[in-house]
């Protein structure tokens, strides 16, 4: 018997209201994901067809093939590099915006977010121009006497371009996490003898860790799943999970292998979320 009269009815009402979106989620997300999983157990025929039989061949390849291991390590490594670079570059910007006031602050926020209004493809092509050997950043560096490294059509270019493209996400996440910051805390630290650097590392930065964690999660995940930028800036030399999935699905037409790699990426994200959850719990 319900202790509270009407409790059962209100629960049913809640479920009824949730039903449409659950249905959408089921049709649009769960079922395709299950299909993807099923696909990973299908046989890939030479020539690109999908066989009828079920097989573990794709999963065996995934685990044993050196190339796939390299893909995973590459993807994680490159994405970590991008995440760290984005954090280091975004933090000062976010801090500056946090301390700005009024109209100037709003202008800065708009400036930070507006690149997101442009498609990633356009922004990546912008980087192709900036990083190209002739007339781009390297020629500028050479002109002032530094020897510029090759930054186009290789891993360096991918990291540079993708870091900048993902920075708005990091900045916005950091700003969200800066809510706990109070200028009084920095003043208190100063009166207690903390130099500006000590005040930053002992007070400001620890307080912003939730925002840092969120930003890193977002940028890491977006980085691993990014294939447009690596394809355009990588010059066919940068092999990541995302680009391989694209190649297998679109060029080689090996959908089963592409599906298998996709599931791998999903598992990777699951792990990352677990790590994130633990980190956030530890921070509180």
């Amino acid at each position: 018997m319900n202790a509270v009269p009407g409790a059962g009815a209100s629960r049913r009402a809640v479920l009824a209201l949730l039903f449409p979106i659950m249905l959408v989620n089921l049709i649009g997300f769960i079922v395709p994901m299950l299909n993807l999983g099923l696909l990973s157990f299908k046989e890939a025929l030479t020539g690109g067809g999908i066989g009828e039989k079920f097989t573990l061949a794709n999963w065996v390849t995934l685990v044993t093939d050196d190339f796939n291991r390299e893909l995973l390590l590459n993807s994680v490594g490159v994405s970590l590099a991008i995440t760290v670079a984005a954090l280091v570059l975004s933090y000062p910007i976010a801090l500056y915006i946090q301390r700005a006031e009024g109209l100037w602050r709003s202008i800065l926020i708009v400036l930070v977010i507006s690149p997101l209004l442009t498609s990633a493809v356009v922004r990546t092509y912008g980087w192709v121009v900036i990083l190209s050997d002739q007339g781009g950043l390297p020629s500028l560096l050479n002109a002032i006497g530094l020897t510029a490294p090759r930054m186009i059509f290789n891993t360096t270019g991918v990291i540079v371009g993708l870091t900048e493209i993902l920075m708005p996400y990091m900045i916005v996440s950091l700003l969200a996490g800066f809510g706990r910051l109070d200028p009084r805390l920095e003043e208190a630290a100063a009166t207690l003898g903390a130099s500006p650097i000590q005040s930053f590392w002992r007070v400001v930065f620890p307080l912003t860790l939730p925002g840092v964690a969120l930003g890193c999660l977002l940028v890491f995940v977006l980085s691993v799943s990014s294939f447009i930028t690596p394809k355009l800036l990588g010059g066919g030399r940068v092999f990541l999970l995302a680009t391989e999935i694209y190649d297998q699905a679109i060029v080689t037409l090996n959908w089963p292998l592409a599906a298998t790699l996709s599931i791998l990426v999903l598992v990777l994200f699951g792990l990352v979320l677990v790590v994130y959850g633990r980190a956030v719990a530890a921070l509180d």
């Binding site: 706990r180 109070d182 009084r184 003043e187 208190a188 630290a189 007070v203 620890p206 307080l207």
Partner: peptide, 9 residues
């Protein structure tokens, strides 16, 4: 400080 400004973390 008036608001104490204790370090919350």
């Amino acid at each position: 400080f008036q608001s104490y400004a204790l370090f919350p973390h």
